[in-house]
Every structure is written in C-alpha cells, then in structure tokens.
C-alpha cells in the first residue's frame, strides 16, 4: 500500500481506529437509554466551537471540545429537569449551534466553504500531528471511562430510578456521559465529520445486537465492528477518492445489513434442522376448563 508512505494517511488511519473503538463504546449507553440521536445534536453544537477556534486562530479541536461539552452538560441538565418541556430548548440549542458555527466560520480568516465541509463530513488530509495527539489522549480517556465504569453506567442507563435508590451518583455519571459524548463527537469530526459522528456511535451497536445476548458481549462486538469499519473506511476512501466519513458509515451499514440477513438466514437453517420449536414451559399449572 503506497498510500501509507504518507504521514497524513497514517495519521488519518490512527485517528479513525481510535474513534472506531471509542464511539461504539460510548454509543451503546446512548442507545440503551434511547438517546441514539444525541450525538447528532451535540455535533451541531460543536460546530460553533469550530467557528470560535478558527476565529481566534486557536486549535478548532480544543475549542470544539469545550463548546460541545458545555452544550452537552446543558442538554443533560435540561433532560434531568423537565421531560417533554425540554424538547424545544434542545431544538433551539442544536439549531443555534449549527447556525452559529456557519456564521463564525464565515467570519474567520479560513473562510471557505471547503473548510466548513471538512468539519461537517470529515477529511483525510486535515489531521495535523498536533490533532492526532489530542485525538489519541481524549479517545483513550473516553475508552477508559466507558470500560471502567461499565457496571455503574449500565445500571444508570438501564434503570435510572433504581440506580438513584441504590445511592449511585446518578447526576455525576450522567454528566460524565454528557462530557464523553462531547469529546467523542469532537475528536471524530476530523475523520467522520460532525454530521456523521452519531452514525459511528449507533450503527455498530445496532449491528452487534442482532446476534448478541448480553450487554458485555454487545459492547465488545460493537467495538470490533466500529474498529473494522473505521479502518476499512479510511483505506477504501483513499483508494476510491471518496470522503472518509461517508465511506466508513456506508461500510458500517453494510456490516449491519450483512449481520441482519446472516442472522435471519441462520435462524431459518436452524429451524429446518430442528423443526421442533422451542416453547417456554408455562409458569402456571394449566387446568382444564
């Protein structure tokens, strides 16, 4: 592979692999508590952070992390307080985020529609050595937090009231999730792009759970699928000259479809081989009427 003689390709690949692992490790909790689209919303907010960074001639990754984290914690506090009444507040925040980002980027020295597209859809050539260092450190932090606190995060996402009665620091854990969501969105924007970040958090989980039985195995399988899709996505996009984010997402979707069809086929084959259907024994003694 001649392509990997270039440093920028190695950086793009390394960044993609880190995100491929970290995004599903976080995404599984978001899917579990039915927040599958929250990554998308935080991505909107992160764009304002990019605009701020470009305007101040600072690293857009760092300013995007800060703005997205503030936005994510705000979303969490709104969610905690009111239930449906927060809906409109969230919409305002998300649309304000993307509009603010577009305006700020336009005002900056780097004002070209091209730079905006890089952040929205990802690009192979924009990841600088400084960026990759930030991505590696933050990605590792997300991964460690998601794995180390798995039992507690699982409990909170599975049954928040039960977790509260257990005396768990529910709010702290929710804010941890909000901040790691913001961090993951931001570090993924270079490779996958802000508009497709959410896909890498959700699709590997959706694919894995077609065939898994437990939470732990789903998490492991989703991380493996994310890693493969992100790695292959970078290679294919370089060969085919397509945007890496969209290529990765299409590959992940292909894995989802393949697993879904494969699992359905396997069930048909097994049913033919063992025609006796598995019926749960009744819990009650059935009486003749």
């Amino acid at each position: 592979m001649d392509l990997f003689q270039y440093d920028f390709m190695m950086r793009a690949l390394a960044g993609a692999l880190i995100i491929g692992l970290a995004a599903p490790a976080l995404g599984i909790y978001l899917v579990q508590r039915r927040l599958s689209l929250i990554g998308d919303g935080i991505g909107h907010v992160a764009l304002t952070g990019v605009g701020v960074g470009l305007l101040l001639n600072q690293s857009p990754v760092i300013s995007a992390v800060i703005v997205a984290a503030v936005g994510a914690v705000g979303v969490e506090l709104i969610r905690e307080r009111g239930r449906t009444s927060g809906d409109l507040a969230l919409a305002l925040l998300f649309y304000g985020g993307i509009a603010g980002g577009v305006v700020l980027v336009a005002l900056s020295d780097d004002a070209s529609s091209n730079s905006l597209v890089q952040y929205l859809f990802g690009s192979l050539i924009t990841t600088s050595p400084a960026d990759i260092a930030v991505i590696a450190v933050l990605g590792a932090a997300v991964l460690i937090a998601m794995l180390a606190f798995r039992p507690a995060l699982f409990a909170v996402c599975n049954d928040e009231e039960y977790a509260r009665v257990s005396g768990l620091p529910v709010r702290a854990l929710n804010i941890l999730m909000a901040i790691t969501t913001a961090v993951t969105v931001t570090i993924a924007m270079r490779t996958v792009g802000l508009l497709l970040v959410s896909a890498l958090m959700v699709i590997p989980v959706a694919a894995a759970q077609q065939v898994t039985r437990g939470f732990r195995t789903t998490m492991a399988a989703a991380m493996a699928i994310g890693l493969v899709a992100a790695g292959t996505g970078v290679v294919v996009s370089a060969e085919a000259d397509t945007p890496p984010g969209a290529t990765t997402v299409i590959l992940a979707l292909a894995v989802f479809v393949a697993i879904t069809i494969g699992a359905a086929g396997w069930r048909v084959v097994r049913r033919r081989a063992h025609p006796v259907r598995e019926v749960e024994p009744p819990d009650v003694v059935l009486q003749e009427v």
């Binding site: 599984i28 039915r34 699982f154 928040e160 789903t218």
Partner: peptide, 16 residues
C-alpha cells in the same frame, strides 16, 4: 426499566 434495544442478560441485570 425502559427495556431498550440493547440486550442484557438476567445475570447482568441482577449484578446491578
């Protein structure tokens, strides 16, 4: 709880 799409085993629930 909400019983979302992510599978969980009986043992994992009880371990909470």
């Amino acid at each position: 709880g909400a019983g979302s799409g992510v599978p969980a085993t009986v043992g994992e629930i009880v371990a909470s």
